[in-house]
């Protein structure tokens, strides 16, 4: 099953490679990984999307907790959460496609953030599923380039990951 893990980790050189190394050494999957500092500059927050059986996810969580620099790990799947991913997608936009592209972007609440004679670059935010659906909805031949950030997640309501 797909799981989304939130990790609070010391913002130190090499900390990221410990996490990534752990996944590769133990044969766990990383579907996506995002990381950046938080409002507290000494801490980074990481979101890892992974998949595996419950046993594997339990081991991943325990192994992550064992890393000296990891402060906290939560499995967002354990309760309500929100996840968002951003995608930048550059598409061919010429002739009658130009209008069609604009319409599609609107339907998915995307924004066109760069325009040339022949292309649009669309910024789209949402769940990973939604971004996938947008790609599916397009004719593959018009897609020139896509960049996705990978999912970031946060618990709903009072559920807070903090020191």
């Amino acid at each position: 099953m797909r799981h989304i893990l939130s990790i609070l980790i010391e913002n130190e050189a090499g900390a990221l490679s410990r996490v990534v190394g752990l996944f590769s050494a133990r044969g766990y999957n990383i579907d996506s990984l995002t990381v950046s500092t938080t409002e507290d500059a000494t801490l980074s927050r990481m979101t890892i999307v992974t998949h595996g059986s419950d046993d594997v996810i339990e081991q991943i969580t325990k192994q992550l907790n064992k890393l000296i620099e990891v402060v906290k790990v939560i499995d967002l799947n354990e309760s309500d959460h929100i996840e968002r991913e951003m995608m930048l997608i550059k598409v061919r936009a010429t002739g009658k496609d130009r209008e069609e592209m604009k319409r599609m972007a609107d339907i998915f609440r995307g924004r066109i953030i760069d325009v040339t004679e022949k292309t649009y670059t669309i910024e789209l935010t949402g769940t990973s599923e939604k971004l996938g659906a947008f790609i599916e909805a397009l004719d593959r031949t018009v897609i020139l380039e896509t960049v996705r950030t990978g999912a970031s997640g946060i618990g709903r309501g009072e559920r807070i990951l903090k020191i």
């Binding site: 339990e58 907790n65 064992k66």
Partner: peptide, 8 residues
Amino acid sequence: IDPSSIAK
């Protein structure tokens, strides 16, 4: 002492 040893 090591939680990751349990149920591994």
